Amino acid sequence: MQIKSVEVKAVRIPMSGQQRNARRTWTHKPMLFCFVTAEDGTVGVGEGWTSYASTAALQATIEDDVAPLVVGRTLEEARDLNARVRDACVMSGRYGILAVALSAVEMALWDIRARQEGVPLWQLLGGTSAEVPVYASGGLYAPDKTPERLGEELVSYVQRGHRRVKIKVGGADHDTDVARVAASRAAIGPDVDLYVDAHYTKDEEAAARFADALVPHAVGWFEAPIIPDDWKGHDRLAARAPIPLCGNETLPWRTSFARLAEAGVGYLMPDVSACGGVEETLAVGNIAQEAGAELTLHSSSSAVLFLASLHVAAAHPAAHSVEFHMMHNWFYDLAGLDAVEVVEGRLRIPDRPGLGLDPHALAAALEAPMRGVGEESPVLKHG
């Protein structure tokens, strides 16, 4: 059965500008979706990572460079899409954006395959359980967010069933961030896992100093401490740091994560919408398993990415967790995720074919007026 068309839709949702991480104040949220249609009318949807870049550039890359490798080919023939796109990188040098473009299209192809089989994607990928461990990702900076209020925020996540939480660091001075970590641990108690994410803001010495300061607060991982492709820096920091490192969501291809595993990074964190797609993420899981590391999936966008991450995690034995973002959780209502419960830190994937989100409903929602948001919320609706 041939692929009939590839269509790209981008959206830019206004936000209040009150929340920020160490690198960005969230005044808007850009997202890009890829709709692939098979000749029998089955539509699959995928998402490409665009949070810090132009959606126009990614759209052009999908339409001009990736779609021609898919349209007119069968689903079986399209299985070599990864190799064909990587071959294109050899001459173009556009490794990053081509990996994201591939991710969006390949995700949609997997959605089609599972829909045509009438099963959830995790089953098609060989998973044995629909229950996936997740963690509540919040703890952003805001003008009125004192350490005490940060602690209250995290407690609210624990009250919703989460057993793991993550906060942002790197957006304040060393002492202020350590105080935020201390307040977080004091609020949630000793039995909830706590992670921190620095968004690549520290140099090697500052990262080592901060890692030492995390030890009294039983932090489970130190995410994105230094720039993502500083391989030798990761070698040295992983050897020095008294807690595991985690990274790096923006890296393309399994080879990047193999290098992190070689450095001794304890948690490999690909993003299904950025690293090359479903198969590439599963390959990163294999690398983690062989290295004695764990796989944790980055997800801070729409229900499309979150669902893809859940399905991949459900299919891989090395999966430690999936990020359940408390602010970037767009269109979750379209997939029934606004009603899903987290029980003892685990979420059950809704029992629907494919990824579990109706592409036609999403396409219609993208044409509707978007409301902005400014505060963390358990689930945000699209309109």
Rank of each mutant, 00 (worst) to 15 (best):
I13A: 03
P14S: 04
Q19C: 02
R24C: 08
W26Q: 00
T27F: 14
F35I: 06
V36R: 01
D40A: 01
A57E: 15
Q59V: 12
Q59E: 15
D64H: 12
V71D: 06
G72W: 15
D80S: 06
V85Y: 01
R86G: 11
D87Y: 15
S92F: 13
A99P: 14
E106D: 12
L121Y: 13
Y135E: 02
S137E: 00
K145W: 09
V155N: 05
H162E: 02
I167A: 01
D173Y: 07
D177M: 07
S184Q: 04
S184I: 08
H199R: 13
H199V: 14
A207I: 04
R209I: 12
F210H: 03
L214N: 10
I226P: 13
D229V: 04
K232T: 14
K232C: 11
K232M: 10
G233W: 06
R240C: 03
A241I: 09
L245A: 06
E262W: 14
C275D: 09
V304H: 05
L305S: 04
A308L: 10
H316C: 00
F324H: 10
H325G: 02
W330A: 08
D338A: 00
E341G: 12
E367M: 10
A368N: 03
M370F: 12
V373G: 07
S377E: 15
K381M: 07
